[in-house]
């Protein structure tokens, strides 16, 4: 019964987006992926939520700037366990073109565990969906 319930629960991964100083390319693509009819993540049971407290899968964009760092870390800590982290775009993964600037503190895996990387600048929505699908399979094992 317990395993069955967990299996059922895995079909409801709610998404939350954190912008850690991105150029908003990935954010726009995330909004597109999450909200519009063409990609409709709701059919995967996903829901885009407004509060970190409701999130299961965290999508992070941006190279982590100095000024946003504390806020991102605080926000990340607010997301209840179990959670899965997806780095969207090359910025959170390696800081991309912004690497080695005085105002950049990334990459993101220096601060908290990342599970899935979706490289691209920005990745296309289909690639993001692929990443989310992968994240769901990781999430299933964590419940």
């Amino acid at each position: 019964m317990k395993t069955f319930l967990k299996k059922v629960a895995a079909q409801s991964p709610w998404l939350y987006r954190i912008n850690a100083g991105s150029c908003n390319g990935c954010d726009v693509e995330l909004a597109t992926t999450a909200c519009i009819s063409r990609y409709d993540v709701e059919r995967l049971g996903c829901k885009y939520c407004g509060s970190p407290k409701h999130a299961d899968i965290v999508l992070i964009t941006g190279p982590m700037t100095t000024r946003v760092k504390e806020k991102v870390l605080r926000l990340y800590a607010e997301i209840p366990d179990p959670k899965v982290t997806v780095a969207v775009g090359i910025c959170p993964i390696s800081c991309g073109v912004f690497r080695d600037s005085y105002a950049i503190e990334g990459p993101i895996d220096k601060y908290f565990p990342v599970d899935i990387n979706v490289p691209g600048c920005p990745p296309r929505p289909q690639a993001i969906i692929e990443g989310i699908a992968e994240a769901i399979s990781v999430w299933r094992t964590r419940l």
Binding site: A9, A10, S12, S37, E42, R43, G45, D56
Partner: peptide
Amino acid sequence: QRRIGPPLHQPFVDLIKLWHKDSS
């Protein structure tokens, strides 16, 4: 809105999921 949308039982699933999450 020209979407497929979630399965009909999605609210049940969401509820069960929330029961498996930490609350703070």
